[in-house]
Structures are given as structure tokens and as C-alpha cells.
Design a protein around this nucleic acid. Sequence first.
DNA 1: CTGAAAGCGCTAACAT
DNA 2: ATGTTAGCGCTTTCAG
Lengths: 348, 348
Amino acid sequence: MNKRVTIMDVAKLAGVNYSTVSLALRGDERIRKSTRDRVAEAASELDYTPNRLARSLSGGSSKVIGVMFTEMSHFFAKPLEALQSTFEKEGYTLSVHFSSWNRQRERNELIHFCENRVDGLIWAPTEWNGEAFIETNELLQRYKTPYVLLGLVEDDCPVVCNQVGGLIEEPIRLAVSYLKSLGHQHIGVATATRLPGHVGGMHRLRLQVIRKVFADYNLTLKESDILETSDHDHGGLEIALRIRENRGSRPTAILAAHDTLARGVAKSLLALGVKIPEDICLIGLDVVQRELDNGTTLASVSLEGEEATRRAARILMNIIGKPAGKSQAQKVIVAPQLILGTSCVPCS
Amino acid sequence: MNKRVTIMDVAKLAGVNYSTVSLALRGDERIRKSTRDRVAEAASELDYTPNRLARSLSGGSSKVIGVMFTEMSHFFAKPLEALQSTFEKEGYTLSVHFSSWNRQRERNELIHFCENRVDGLIWAPTEWNGEAFIETNELLQRYKTPYVLLGLVEDDCPVVCNQVGGLIEEPIRLAVSYLKSLGHQHIGVATATRLPGHVGGMHRLRLQVIRKVFADYNLTLKESDILETSDHDHGGLEIALRIRENRGSRPTAILAAHDTLARGVAKSLLALGVKIPEDICLIGLDVVQRELDNGTTLASVSLEGEEATRRAARILMNIIGKPAGKSQAQKVIVAPQLILGTSCVPCS
DNA sequence: CTGAAAGCGCTAACAT
DNA sequence: ATGTTAGCGCTTTCAG
């Protein structure tokens, strides 16, 4: 590397002291306009490029926010946008890392963030109560980097820190109570619990919660009304065919464990001539895209991920630079939203 | 902030000079084992955490690789893993940024990377030949940060730099020539060009290339054999129904512009009783997941994104630290792979 | 084997 | 309005 250009060189060329360059380059009003221009000119002539490492080291702040997500999935796309737009206008840049569901990696990269002196951290953990989770939190608090957890919020979270997210049961409770309020008593469930990996895990967790919520609402869930598929993306048709077959004793409404599946079921039903909501009602979870064919829109429950992310960003902004974390740890619960559509009507 | 712990403090506690701490902490053999242990103990007692900013500034290398992707989508998941595994074992950390298809942002964050002195850059550009693209490249070269472009490789790319990727026409040529070699003359296309945004753009581009390739291969593509849907994820059924209807004069094979769509079509056809490959053959593009029902596997063309990424990583590793970019700019073209399946057979 | 000292490039309080 | 000077926390020769 042929020696990098520094403010010294610029100072020499512009014929001023190097601290003047520092100020001038950042447009400090104390420096005369003409001088600033001269400095800027010299800088561009030399292809000067500021060294943020030095700036951060000296200034005490890197103006970078670390973001720790579990995986590179579409799911985080909008939350990321929310973070981006919040922090961008405050002069912060985001650096995103992915744990890939590997706790070891998660821990290391989190530490890495801290050692690189990010000004704050948004963290969507892979788990919320394991030993590793607790330990990593302690580590983080030792580093004193402000951070906020994003995702679920459990009542009995073993760690005291800022966290923003939704409760697990709420969205399902919302969907079920909505169906029940419409008079539905015979409700089926569409799900894909046999899937491997994270998606399957989500389905299994949700089905489990659905069972619990059904019980809470005094609804019986017959095993034969649990419509399983082994394809999250394209299993809708399989389920729709079973529903069509089962003319006589089918449920009056279906709750799908995820909107992607719900959409597949819905589009397939419509294509097969089973009318929604006339023949059967349908509601999903996690808003993906609402419009179906025939002008029907899918009812669903939004988990408000973007809103949660925005809240998390705001909290982080607030605690950054505050007197040494002497702000109370906040626990913000974002309520899910019932998104009405034309796919559900009162049970006839 | 109550003063951060530094090597000075550790040195004091351990009763050695602070440069000794620096060496000891990095396990330098020149320091006696017993001293190293004492230092380590003192460090952990004080909750000492090294400051990488200072280390990078002083050491001249940040051990960070900047990664610039267009959007947070599933598409980049495996490439990211490939990068991660390559660089992790060399002691580098990845910092991922997303342009969100915004050239302005893309430029800024790229600069940001450089000013933060990342050791190298992997960049999947939003466009490959606009004015902004050229200008950003010039900028990057001025910063002298080694970088390699990842994605498409066009023959007439206006910029000379390291780049790795595939050609646009090749995968389609591969699919079409395969079908033709099986004797298919009447080939239909499944696509979703009316979609908004990036996905729609991809479909439009591909259809255009498909038209060209058909012409090159002396195949006629009737407008009525272009099977359009307006749903990338769940449009398969719609298309499958049209295929089933059209018993008499339907194509003997279908080329789907993307595997997600191909899978939807395939699963729907099977469910509707149209046999693959007996009644109709099917091939996709971009391997998503190959298994269908009935033990059928989908034929497709892999774009070898992971392989390309791995190559890009290797190139970057090689030029990092090399004599001031005095290595020739490489242009690596990764060939697509025809992935055979049971969904295509010779035309009867 | 360990200590002293000179930077890395920049910021910021204090002088002039 | 500009220049002086002392760090920021660490690496890295070079002496001892």
C-alpha cells in the first residue's frame, strides 16, 4: 500500500494546520468559508478519504448500529427497512450479522460488535431462555453496549433488559376468538408440522398453542380436522382437495398456521370451486399479502413486526448516550392486529 | 460512561508493561507462559475488552469484509453462508449491508465500508451498466479497497474489475436445448411478468431471453403457449388448470421461468391428475427444491450461486494484501448446471 | 524475555 | 478565525 493520504497531507497542500482540516471537512462554521473551500479542494485533489476508524477511536462513537438477526430471510426485510430509515436520519449506519441459528456464532458476533464499539445493538435472539441466552446477555451487559432484544416477549424472561415484541399466544387467541365470535364452533387447522428446520418448528409451536387456545375457548379440535401438509409453500392445494372432498362433515372455518399456507389453501379452494366465505371461512396468521382472486381478501392477524422494530429502534436511540444505562429496562409488548377481510363471515 | 478498561489497567494489575499485555493477550510465544496466564487473569478480573477500533487503526487491518447485497431475501441466504464459512476460517468477520435497490444508498454504504477500512468488499450491484454504476466503481477504485462484483457477468461490462457470475442467456439456453434434444418442438412457457417490483422484472427479463433463445433454436413460441399468472408463489394452480383444460393442443413440455412457479405448476398438475412426465414434461430455472410428490423430481437449471460466491470469496482472499492491486482483474464466468430429474422424457 | 517509545489518523479543549 | 497540544487504545520495532 502506497501510504494513505491523511489530513496532514491535505493540510500541507491547503497551507493550514491539520486540525483546521478536520474542522473544515466537517463544515464547521468557525472556519472561514474561503478556507473551507480551499481545504475541500485540496482534499479532492489528493483523493483524500477520511479514516473512520481513527475518527471513531478519537471521537468515542462509531455511529454504527449492530443488528443481529437469525437468518437471511424475507421475514426480516421490512423490519430491516424500518431500522434503516430510523437510524439513517440520525446519522447511523447499520451493520447486519446473522447467527444462522448457531448460538456460538451469535455470541461471537455480538462480542465482535461490542469490541468494534458499535453505538448500539438490535438483537433478535435464536432462543429466549436457554443457558447460552442468559450468559450472552450477561456478557453484553458487561460490555455496556446499549442493546434491545427484538422478537418474542415472554412473561418469565430470565433476563432483565430492554425488549420489544409480541406474546406468543395473543395472535392465535385473536384469530380464534374472532372465529368464535362469528359463531364458528367447528374449526379446522391447516399446518405443516412435519417440515424440517425452522419453518417446521414454527408450525409445531403454533399448533401446540392453537390446541391450548382452543381448549381455553372451549372448542374441540378433532384430530381429523388438523389438515397437515408437508409443503409450506405449495401444500395449499393438497389441503384444499381434502376440504372439497369432505363436503358433509367439514369445519365451517379454517385457521391456517401461516399466511403463506393460508393463501395457498385459499387460492386452491377458489380454483376448485369451493367458495370463500360462502362454503367455508378462512383466516391466516402473519400478514403476507391479502388480495386473493375474485376480489376476496384474506382475513389474518398481523404480528406487527415492523411496528415492533420501530419501537425497538426508538428505545435504542433513547438510551444511546444516556447516563451509563441508568435508564430502566423497558419491556414493550406489541399487540397483534386482527386484519379483517372478506374471507370470514358469521357461521350460518 | 465510567472510563473503559484498557490494557494499561490490565498491565497495572498484572504488574507488567502494557505492551507486554498486548502481546500476552494475543498469545505471543515470546512471553513466558506464567506471565501470559497472570495477564489473562488480570484481564478477566477487570472485564477487559479489547478495542478493535484501536487495534485496526494501529494494525492497519480491520479483519472485516464488507458485503453489499441488494435486498434481504432468501436468495442470498446460501451465498452468505458460503461467504461466512470461507472468511470465518481466515479470521475475518462479515458486515452485511443492503442497498434496497437504491443506488444512492448503495454508493454511500460502499463508501462507508471503505472509510471504515474494511479489508475487502463483495458487491452484488443493483445494476451493471448505468452511469451510477460506473461512477461508483471509479470511486471504489480510488479508495483502493479490493472488491469483487458478484452476480451477472456481461460481455460488455463497462467497468474493468474483478467479477464473478453467470451469463444471462446460458441457463435458458441449457434448458431449451435439453428439451429440444429430447425431441420437444412444442414448448410452452410459464411465467408471471405482470408482477410488480423485482420479481416481475426477473420474469420479464427471462421471458424476453426465452423468446430470443427459442428463435435461436428455431422453435416457435405461440402467444397462446405463454402461460401467465400474476402470482409467483401460488399461480401454479391457475396455470395447471389451463394446461389440463387444453387437452388437445397443448405443448409437450413446459419451461417455467422460475422453480417456485415450476413447483407450483408441477404439484398442481399432479394433484389434478395430469401426469408428469407422461402427459407433459416440465423444467424450471433456479433450483429451489427438487422433490415433488409421487417420487417425481423436477428437472431444472442451477445458476450455481453458491459456487459463484465461493469463487468470489477466493478471489477476494487472494487480492487482499497483494501488492497494491497489481493483480490482473479477473472475470470468472460460472456455468449453469442442468439438473436432471424425472420430470422430462423424450417426446413421444 | 520484557520494557520504552513512536506512531496509526483523527478529535477536541485550549491557546493565540 | 486558526494553530497547539494532548490524547483515543493498541501494535510494533528496538533496546535492555
